[in-house]
Design a protein around this nucleic acid. Structure first.
Lengths: 299, 299
DNA sequence: CATATGCTATACGGAAATATATGAGCCGCG
DNA sequence: CGCGGCTCATATATTTCCGTATAGCATATG
């Protein structure tokens, strides 16, 4: 076997996949188109298979390229994580921390917390990645994650912060217009805001609450933030965290006894980062703030 | 910020960490010592921190280097996994598959299974990584893993093959010499083979079996294979899979009612490899063979 | 104390990879 | 139809990087 190819070829490979053309990749990487072409030629030689079909409008990836793509992307995110970790090793809390969280946490809860964090550590930069994907940490796409599921993974440092209670809510105008349901059965005559995609999480949810099925959803959307704004707009009855609803005097909890869930929440970090001053500081602050947020709710 | 450094620098960084010297790394990578020195200089420039202390006896890593090491190693194993995946994309089952398994599975159960697999697919090469580490798949250090814990990780394709029953066993010569225990309490007067390190798994085991604690272990060793050979040598009473003990007429099960465990076993693969002909074939074969092995035991 | 054997650091010529410049093909638009 | 904008491919010039050779230093050995 010939010697291992330069790892830079993988970076070029990523860029070509992302841009769809040699010249686009060249612009993205600050190189020139002939160099990119040579890189791709070399990589195809190394892996022993064509990776792209050359057309006049650019390059389209072959099956082989798509199969190799996740590996190259993992290398890219790992490299980014390495540079992030290396950044600002001054003993002070500076540099960049990348946090992965759900949309709701990132949009509703984190801003205030991050504001305080930034005031305390003026050199700290923060990147927020909002999604419900749960494998960000292992793909090194984030340094710290806020998760609603307890990670069973070793090599991860996890700390529980408590449970966010979740319930059905509606705007008071909606209830004035349509009446307040007295039982889960009453919900059949109401406008329910529910989920669209059939993800495993949604299926599990449906199993826990047989009274709420897809057929009765008047509005189907995956974004929990969209749920919240639809509730606030008086569209109907939907699910949101009670902490959020309580902060808005116009929102009313519906069927608090018949429907309630607790979102167990953890702050999670890769153990490799445990010794990193900056990540550690952000981790501890997130744990403290979120714990206080949940506790404050209970008190 | 300056442009991202060449990813090849990380490879050099790994080699210097592994070899402990510039010239050693140069030999390992097939480059020359001045090139390695330039790479390390460039990397230190890029991360903005010294990575090694230069001495006349080689280079010793700084804290910064140790902090960055896991990232660089992940890049290395990812690159290796990419090349493995790219290998032999002929539609046939050829190329290399890397399997991670426990020592016992890899040494006792797999050889026969792999023999049949190889006869069926003569072009298939197999790499075996035997350890009890469970994060091999996510670090891309293996394509397929055989696990005794159910992975809660998404992005992993897992299939149960059943449970391997485990029990206390001893050589018949030992029992002839020392008598057969009638109860767990009797074990206090016997030579017990137990574990050395205080890993979480061992702690959990100790909690399930309060009758067996570290103080009464006459031989403490972590390798389950060493347990097995010690049992066969007549050292004392130890734990091993009943399937293995049953194959040896000299071994006798002890206290079958008072002590038994079931090792739930899964074959696990990263979902990225689900479309890969070769990995898929090995995955399916492992599932079929291990299932038959466990079932055959029960029948 | 002299010698041998590691190691790193530095200087310099040559090979390799890069950028520049140019050509050819495809597509949309007036 | 013909033009401008995009693409990739090719040929040439330039820069970058690597290897060779050498020097300097520390340690081990007699």
């Amino acid at each position: 076997m010939s010697r291992e190819p330069s790892w830079d070829l993988y970076r070029t490979f990523n860029a070509v996949l992302a841009e769809g053309s040699l010249s686009g990749a060249a612009r993205a990487l600050g190189l020139t188109q002939p160099s990119i072409a040579r890189h791709i030629d070399a990589l195809e030689e190394a892996v022993g298979a064509p990776l792209f079909l050359r057309t006049a409008r650019g390059l389209s990836p072959t099956d082989a390229a798509l199969e190799l793509r996740p590996f190259a992307e993992l290398m890219a995110s790992t490299s980014a994580a390495l540079l992030r970790t290396a950044e600002g090793r001054t003993g002070e809390v500076d540099g960049t921390v990348r946090i992965s969280a759900s949309e709701v946490v990132g949009i509703i809860h984190l801003p205030a917390i991050l504001t305080r964090l930034r005031q305390r550590y003026p050199l700290l930069a923060i990147e927020l990645s909002l999604s419900n994907a749960v494998d960000d940490l292992l793909k090194r796409q984030a340094d710290i994650a806020i998760r609603m599921v307890r990670p069973e993974q070793q090599a991860l440092l996890a700390r529980r912060v408590g449970a966010f209670p979740v319930g059905l809510h509606a705007h008071k105008d909606y209830l004035a217009r349509r009446g307040t349901p007295r039982s889960m059965d009453d919900l059949r005559h109401h406008d329910i805001i529910g989920y669209d995609a059939e993800t495993p999480a949604v299926r599990a949810f449906a199993q826990r609450h047989p009274g709420l099925d897809r057929a009765m959803f008047a509005l189907r959307v995956d974004s929990n933030i969209a749920h919240l704004t639809a509730i606030k707009a008086g569209f109907g009855i939907g699910i949101c965290q009670t902490i959020i609803a309580d902060a808005d005097p116009d929102l009313v909890r519906v069927l608090p006894d018949a429907f309630h869930e607790d979102l167990e929440t953890c702050v999670v970090m890769h153990e490799d980062l445990g010794a990193n001053t900056r990540c550690r500081a952000v981790f501890d602050a997130l744990v403290a703030e979120l714990t206080a947020l949940v506790r404050g709710r209970q008190g």
